[in-house]
Write a protein that binds this DNA or RNA. Structure first.
Lengths: 330, 330
DNA sequence: CTGAAAGCGCTTACAG
DNA sequence: CTGAAAGCGCTTACAG
């Protein structure tokens, strides 16, 4: 069934049916009603391929991601999909688990103009390429989990303030000797978290000893190893500020193994507030990242740009919040 | 840039360029080489919208899911995407977190013929609808996590045998009094797991007491509650067979809280083998579901059907395996 | 082996 | 307010 069938049955031209469908031109109310009745009766839905071809627009948004199996990525994508679906768009998902080959394929889809705009959680080392796509006219919004501040639209969060809140909380419960387990220091977000946390302690007249900052890489194993090394080295600490929840969970397991009580001997603060943070043992105090909101806001900004509202050039920054649980306050 | 530009520059017709692009007809090797050279030189990529329109085929596969935030769903989708991308297809993802509204939107995309085939992890209560889509000619493959055995192509796993393996393992390490924490018994997979486990104990001359089967709903909370209730009721057990890892993890936390040692007092076996199962405390012995393989096999079966190989009518069954960790063998 | 032409199902100036 | 016609960029019989 095509627009022709509807037109014939309603006794109008295809042009008129098209107008009813898209409803921006003036048309006689009665004609419109009649056409609409026929559309309903026939259950007609315009062929998406034909519409895309004629309009030069797909009603599809792509999302480029490192992988779907990361802890928080499902949340971002879910939120973005919901926002996208709300406007009748579809979401094409691309991941880069196959490295170069994945990027080659993605590029192919870009060149083929298979979608109208792009949401991206940056796969490592692709920022220049994404920037080029943006410069070439593809609407792009970056969901910035790494503190990039790119030259195009992005959504980020307050890493520095989040870490500051962690510092205040630990100071507030009387902890004076924190150990920091950081993520990879090449990331802007890691720098921001280190800076914010140091700032909080500095404001209380306490300088953080650089020896009390151990480097992890956001993985479970690295969280475990960090605590292990710190204990072996005989470092003294009454609290942990860990740059993500996964490492924090690992750290807690390791602390318990060493016979330390949480929070009595060591209070632990994470970063992310993933769903499992409420279910660790003990439940984890952590800096809440507005993951869902970031996905949603990014999607909405992209959709708005299709309607002519340009994506802001500076990052859209969404605030973290602070979630207190039993890992710091028994 | 369009196919016209390439044709002009190569001094051939658009038909010829199209033939080079799709390469199924015979053509002069030299002509083909010349056209290919021009294509490379110009970096020409056919417009996906035009191709889709002309061919009546989109090179896009859709995946319908309850949600992207479930523990194992990212793995399935990731595996499916990789298989899809390998053949140059794109993956359109739809979730049903918005209930009826989501389904209405999805239906719209179906009617608009926005994709060539469908992969589905069934959102509750949609099986009849999916069956109808299949009957109307849409290629569909179900990734069956619930023991459905639908009337169309599906990929499933050996729930019964997996549970049987769990029973054998527990018997093998001398456990005689298991407590089972099940999922929602309306699911076929839950029935299969109950049956397989009971079978294993029956074969060893031991009948399972129905009182020792407590019902959960696959959620963390329900796992915790189940153990709590069992202990309150004074049930005696030396082991736990839990129908998924999430409840198993919750159960372990609750056991520890009650002062019981794992595995000394209670050995614990889960089901799924999610990534976190290796990182619980202690690491969880569990029935490994071939989640990635299911996604991959389902995607490949769907792609094969586009090439004329029909999707088999009976379920494609992939075997579970059994992963032994410290929660049963200290 | 190659090309001219029709056609895929819409949208959108343009004319009335 | 409405319609005839061109056009979007390919593919695919059909003819040679």
């Amino acid at each position: 069934m095509t627009i022709r069938d509807v037109a014939q049955r309603a006794g109008v031209s295809k042009t008129t049916v098209s107008r009813v469908l898209n409803g921006r031109d003036e048309l006689d109310a009665r004609t419109a009603a009649r056409v609409r009745a026929v559309i309903d009766e026939l259950g007609y839905v315009p062929n998406a391929r034909a519409v895309a071809f004629a309009r030069g627009t797909t009603h599809v948004v792509a999302m480029l991601l490192p992988s779907l199996t990361w802890p928080w990525i499902g949340e971002v994508v879910q939120a973005a999909i919901e926002a996208i679906e709300d406007e009748g768009y579809g979401m094409l998902v691309f991941t880069t688990t196959q490295g170069e080959e994945s990027m080659r394929r993605f590029t192919e889809h870009v060149s083929a103009r298979a979608f109208d705009g792009l949401l991206v959680v940056e796969p490592e080392g692709t920022l220049d390429y994404i920037t080029r796509l943006h410069d070439e006219g593809l609407p792009v919004v970056l969901i910035d989990d790494r503190g990039h501040e790119p030259r195009f639209g992005s959504v980020a969060t307050t890493n520095r303030l989040g870490a500051l809140a962690a510092a205040h909380h630990l100071l507030g419960i009387g902890r004076r000797a924190p150990l920091v387990i950081s993520g990879d220091p090449r990331f802007g977000c890691v720098q921001d978290r280190l800076a914010g946390f140091a700032e909080g302690f500095a404001a209380a007249g306490r300088t953080l000893d650089p020896l009390h900052v151990v480097e992890g890489d956001f993985s479970y194993e690295s969280g475990q190893a960090a605590v292990h090394r710190a204990l072996e080295a005989g470092l003294e600490f009454d609290s942990l500020f860990v740059h993500n929840d996964t490492m924090a969970m690992a750290a807690m397991t390791e602390l318990r193994r060493a016979g330390l009580r949480i929070p009595d001997d060591v209070a632990v603060v994470g970063f992310d507030d993933l769903p499992f943070a409420a279910q660790t043992d003990p439940p984890l105090t952590t800096v809440h990242q507005p993951i869902r909101e970031m996905g949603q806001v990014a999607a909405r900004a992209l959709l708005a740009s299709f309607r002519g509202t340009p994506v802001p050039n500076e990052p859209i920054v969404l605030p973290t919040s602070f979630t207190v649980r039993a890992s710091t306050v028994g």
